[in-house]
Design a protein around this nucleic acid. Structure first.
Length: 298
DNA sequence: AGCTGTGTTGAA
DNA sequence: TCAACACAGCTG
């Protein structure tokens, strides 16, 4: 179901005008009648029942089951409301995939799922968005960030990547152990603050300074984003969320995001060429502090 | 006092 | 896996 779908549309069954006492059973999958005339929703996983809450409307309970089925079994699972409202959008699937089952179940039990989904969809659908899949909904793991130095934004046209982070999160560069200059590698990053615009940088090791650097492409990034010394560039990587909400790296997609250095109160400077189109501090939902991000280099 | 959500069982 | 049924507990 999509967030834009009015709930009332499918909330009317046959027994709308009458308070209708509990029927002996529901026509919807995962829905069970409650003694008081309300409806309960449940889904089974591994022999165990997962209670999804009770609902006044039979169809609302059925929809709760659908949501759970989407999260527990993927878009392939049988659902009560296929078609129209039941068609899971890529964005909704991402929304679901980005949170642990327990959280989804909580939202269903508290009847807050639709609100949360709408809110996430709204905040994620900025003007610069390209696909219909909001980047803010893509689960990501933070890799590292660096406050850029004057030389990082100066004429050197390069960003020094702290050795520890480079070696831990970026693909290994042959030759970084000996004094030979490693062959350059091209890395692509999706811009979290700009609807996924892709930035490509040459990544290499400068043996002369014994530094890992992002070179070609970096200066353009600095210029277009208006990055100045003191600002921060953050790197993250696509991740997957397990049943328990544990985040695991795995996908190769990497992301970059720039954050303006916090200014006390003086000027807010130009508000559009900024690196964060939305205006204020963009809140990106990142997961878990301690995740074993998969090695990018495979 | 009401309701929710679990215990449990038999069918699919 | 799934739902029917009973009712233990919980909530207010």
């Amino acid at each position: 179901m999509s967030a834009s779908m009015p709930e009332a549309d499918w909330m009317d069954g046959d027994d709308e005008a009458s308070p209708a006492p509990a029927r002996s059973s529901s026509r919807y999958k995962g829905v069970v009648p409650q003694p008081n005339g309300r409806w309960g929703a449940q889904i089974y996983e591994r022999h165990a029942r997962v209670w999804l809450g009770t609902f006044a409307d039979e169809a609302a309970a059925a929809r709760a089951y659908d949501v759970a089925a989407l999260r527990f079994r993927g878009s392939g699972g049988a659902v009560n409301f296929p078609g129209a409202g039941g068609v899971p959008s890529a964005a909704e699937m991402a929304f679901l995939a980005a949170r642990p089952k327990s959280e989804v179940v909580d939202m269903l039990r508290k009847h807050t799922y639709d609100d949360e989904l709408r809110q996430a969809l709204r905040s994620g659908s900025g003007a610069g968005e390209r696909g219909d899949l909001s980047l803010s909904l893509v689960p990501r793991v933070a890799l590292f960030e660096k406050a850029v130095t004057p030389s990082d934004v100066g004429r050197l046209n390069r960003l020094v990547v702290p050795k520890l982070h480079a070696e831990k999160h970026f693909p290994p560069l042959a030759g970084d152990e000996d004094d030979a200059t490693a062959p350059p590698v091209l890395l692509a990053f999706e811009d979290v603050g700009d609807g996924g615009k892709v930035w490509r940088f040459r990544y290499s090791y400068w043996s002369s300074s014994q530094s890992y650097v992002l070179t070609r492409g970096w200066s353009r990034f600095v210029r277009e984003k208006g990055i100045v010394a003191g600002d921060t560039v953050a790197f993250s990587q696509a991740a997957a969320v397990t049943d328990d909400g544990e985040v695991v790296g795995g996908k190769r997609r990497m992301f970059i995001e720039c954050r303006k250095r916090k200014r006390d109160d003086d000027d807010d400077d130009r508000g559009d060429d900024d690196c964060c189109p939305d205006g204020g501090a963009r809140v990106v939902r990142l997961f878990g502090a301690n995740i074993a991000a998969a090695t990018i280099g495979d």
